[in-house]
Design a protein around this nucleic acid. Structure first.
Lengths: 138, 138
DNA sequence: CTAATTCCTATTAAAATAGTCGGATTTAAA
DNA sequence: TTTAAATCCGACTATTTTAATAGGAATTAG
């Protein structure tokens, strides 16, 4: 589970969509203005969200994006995964020369990072997009 | 809570110390060989560990490092904090211009990242250095 | 047509991380 | 008293990752 501002932007943008569900397709320009993220950067993010079937698009003037499923069926983990691809950055598999190569002896911390990764994953698994939008209303 | 390989190295090195508790001061050279981390890099890490009173050093030939407290009293969170200083990288405070400035409206994801941060912190708070060393014996 | 949009790829800029280097100081032991 | 091995210290460099921009092509409502 990789956590960067790109992931945060993606969640913000998705929450923005979820908050404006009745307005027809939302253009990236609108999201850009509301969330203060450049359109070009949002484009990159939305291509990935679309690939993972979290949003659908309509092109041309008055085009934009809509949630592909109800906000209650989209988990935060789905969003993070969509834009940050890589599943694990915390453990040792990344640099196979150094540290833990998983062959002879696992490095001492191997299990620890694995467990943390699961921990984080479960956290994002529990929270749905709908929950964020509700919270915002408080 | 910031998570980098430097933090992982620090945990590995501390676990190494804890595993060799009866051998007198352990030199960075030994740790370097066992854990495959350069001595120069270990130096940087140990200066910080020392500052936070997690290890004590003796200088000169035959010098090296020892745990300052029993492994059962050192939490993983202590180690991560010692080397990675910064408390939060996940939330929005980092870049104050963009995203959440916490004044007008909190950005939608603000609470989410805060909660995650606590979540991770609690995880590392629970695990003690001693636990790692025990696990290694399996 | 035109303007606004998604779509696509490549490139650049900025920041963070990882790691090195050179030397000063300390100390046990030959 | 010399030597070798160690900690200590600060600056520097290299690498990688992340963030963001640039320049267009394709699509479509009005």
């Amino acid at each position: 589970m990789k956590l960067t501002t790109k992931g945060r932007y993606a969640v913000m943008a998705m929450a923005d969509l979820a908050s404006n569900i009745n307005s027809g397709p939302i253009s990236l320009r609108e999201i850009s203005l509301r969330q203060n993220i450049s359109v070009a950067y949002l484009e990159q993010i939305f291509i990935k969200l679309k690939k993972r079937k979290l949003v659908k698009s309509s092109r041309g003037a008055t085009g934009g994006y809509l949630l592909e499923k109800p906000a209650s069926e989209i988990r935060i983990s789905n969003i993070i995964f969509a834009v940050d691809e890589e599943v694990k950055m915390l453990n040792c598999k990344k640099n196979s020369k150094k540290g833990c190569n998983n062959k002879t002896t696992k490095c001492i911390t191997h299990n620890l990072w694995d467990e943390l990764d699961q921990h984080i994953h479960q956290f994002f698994e529990k929270v749905k997009l709908q929950d964020l939008v509700k919270k915002e209303l408080n």
